[in-house]
Design a protein around this nucleic acid. Structure first.
Length: 271
DNA sequence: ACGCTCTCCTGGCCGC
DNA sequence: TGCGGCCAGGAGAGCG
């Protein structure tokens, strides 16, 4: 997926194009994404005006006076604003058509995304209520990581990917931040000290910030809301680079699986 | 509570 | 060129 930088890029891309627009029609071309789609969406949405477009973790929240649309891009989802008459492609599952003729189109080959309607505060929705702090917020820092990790035996990489700990750090940026911080991704979270967590928190913020500035990372499926790819791929130091020389020490970048996910690291720079 | 695995889905790529 | 196997940015569910 779309990790945090990709969702942020999408949020910034669509917000100015759809804020204030009134929904005329919702078109669903599949009956389920990650979960069965609530057909009530088609009843609730027409006539609503988009008052806000926000991101929380990897969720996009479209606020209206009556409730909120909660969107998740899953592993392969993307959103674009196109003219409503634009011919749909195979994986264009949802269209939110506005009265002015614009269309917010959700595309997701793997159908791991989500689309939910809630009339409560979306931040209190069961999917969002348990989420950890935003990584770019001040409350996310080395002290927080250190305290949260005491007694934890889980490897540090899956640890920082746990959305209950901190949101938005996915598989790509977890490898990148650990490389930048010089921490072996296999280390038990509970055995890493304050200073190293201080560094890791800084690197997570730095890497995510750079990726947002580059419009995210496009491996294959992700595109910005204007259809362009994200350009951060060129700046990836280790992700997807097994066998290539480490940009710092030239030794071969290694890969392994941790918690079912591909992990890339330099065994010389990361201890 | 914690740590681990499996699972949803489609497509691209690799090797035979 | 076709086919099987494996892999892919997420994360909830269920297990011990």
């Amino acid at each position: 997926m779309p990790e945090l930088p990709e969702v942020e890029t999408t949020c910034r891309g669509i917000a100015p194009l759809i804020t204030g627009k009134t929904i005329a029609q919702l078109v669903l071309r599949t009956d389920k994404l990650r979960w069965p789609l609530d057909q009530g969406l088609c009843l609730h949405l027409p006539g609503q005006r988009i008052l806000s477009v926000e991101r929380r973790a990897k969720y996009l929240l479209l606020g209206t006076a009556q409730g909120s649309l909660i969107l998740h891009l899953g592993m392969s989802g993307s959103l674009r604003v196109v003219p409503a008459e634009t011919t749909e492609n195979k994986h264009d599952h949802v269209d939110l058509i506005f009265t002015g003729g614009e269309c917010l189109r959700f595309t997701d080959p793997r159908k791991f995304g989500a689309l939910l309607w809630t009339e409560e505060d979306p931040l209190l929705h069961p999917l969002l209520a348990q989420l950890g702090p935003e990584p770019l917020a001040e409350e996310f820092n080395g002290r927080y990581l250190y305290q949260a990790s005491r007694g934890r035996k889980i490897a540090v990489k899956p640890f920082v990917m746990d959305q209950k700990l901190v949101v938005g750090v996915g598989n790509i940026y977890a490898s990148e931040a650990l490389f930048a911080a010089g921490i072996d991704p296999r280390l038990a979270a509970g055995r890493i000290g304050r200073r190293r967590y201080q560094r890791l928190a800084e690197e997570i913020k730095r890497v995510l910030g750079l990726a947002i500035a580059a419009g995210g990372t496009t491996i294959s499926d992700f595109f910005q809301s204007d259809g362009k790819p994200g350009y951060f791929k060129q700046q990836l130091q280790v992700y997807g680079r097994a066998g290539e020389p480490c940009p710092h020490c030239q030794s071969q970048i290694k890969s392994l699986r941790l918690g079912q996910r591909s992990t890339y690291y330099c065994s010389r720079c990361q201890r």
